[in-house]
Design a protein around this nucleic acid. Structure first.
Lengths: 188, 188
DNA sequence: ATCAACCTGTGACGATCGTCACGAAACAGC
DNA sequence: GCTGTTTCGTGACGATCGTCACAGGTTGAT
């Protein structure tokens, strides 16, 4: 909970009253490696603050897993589309390591936002952050080749390259695992 | 203005009072083909509702234009990152046809949102729409090959293939113009 | 300690793509 | 209508990537 409090305070000036309002909405949950936070077809009714470990989102395409994002400590993981509209999720969310998260209940969060302008502002800031991250993600794939994407990760997310296996990373970067192996070889 | 009113009403229940509040914030502007709505390095201080024509966003990479998006009638074009934070834009926005837009002034819009909860809600809906679109865009490039992306456009944006030249489209899809020409050839 | 399951590196080969080059077609300005 | 400019299709060729195959290394459970 301490990590979460610090994270929220880094986003906005959170008053003690707002924090008290948030508290009953929060539920710590643990997942084993490989356990699903969200499955394709389910409706996403929570935000997951990641306290320890990481998870990844993937689509199933032609029976194969295709990773689209990784979420680490101090990230919020969710399907914003399903969470916002109530439609079933088109992809999966699964733990890549033993995982400890703090779940924000959707209905409880909506109630808390109605009661406090501070929490409502926090929600808006989260959406804008998410939109900004999606834009960055889209640009990463529109502007750069797989090798340039790998270099970008080296600079901006070096920890990720240590914690995520080559195969999972290759699936995310959009190349065969053999190709990523050769990209790594070239840079030494 | 009539198109814009219909568009806003399709997003939310806009009261006549809110529409009157919006009115002084709006400025119709015309651009010739090739004229810039926003240049790299400038700060984006407006949203552009597209009334007629289309525009495209592009990055300069190694001296070449790399398209990242197209905006048509009834779209809102802007740099959400620059608009939100006040930082200089990393890309350009340029008219692809003779263009008529209605510009939303940033400061005026902020004032109007403070005066009306309805306009504030409209703004939140716009951000969520934008985030959703960015996610779709990111998935389009993470999950699909260039040929599959072209097929996706055929189904979801067929008008775009008629109005945008092959070269501009190839730049957007991430392949050489010769390759797109051959992709088209294969489908006949 | 042992064994199975998984992950990583590497070679070979065919398919696809980017680049360069050229000619035809479409278009705009006069 | 003519002309210069831009766009589009296509061939050739080298580079890169995906696929298949296999070997060595790591991990984790019994």
């Amino acid at each position: 909970m301490n990590n979460l409090l610090r994270y929220l305070q880094s986003l906005t000036d959170l008053s003690p009253g707002d924090w008290a309002l948030m508290h009953p909405v929060l539920t710590p949950v643990a997942f084993k490696k490989g356990a699903h936070l969200l499955r394709e077809g389910e409706v996403c009714n929570a935000l997951f603050y990641i306290d320890r470990g990481y998870c990844r989102s993937y689509y199933l395409k032609d029976g194969l897993e295709k990773n689209t994002a990784f979420y680490f400590e101090n990230d919020i993981a969710t399907n914003i589309q399903s969470f916002g509209t109530g439609e079933p999720s088109a992809y999966n969310l699964v733990a890549g390591e033993p995982l400890q998260v703090i779940a924000f209940d959707k209905q409880g969060l909506a109630r808390a936002a109605q009661q406090s302008a501070g929490i409502e502002a926090l929600g808006r800031k989260c959406i804008r952050l998410f939109a900004s991250r999606q834009e960055e993600q889209a640009n990463l794939f529109q502007l750069y080749t797989a090798g340039e994407r790998y270099a970008w990760l080296e600079q901006h997310q070096p920890e990720m390259l240590q914690r995520v296996s080559l195969s999972q990373l290759a699936s995310y970067l959009g190349v065969a695992r053999e190709t990523l192996s050769r990209i790594r070889k070239r840079r030494m």
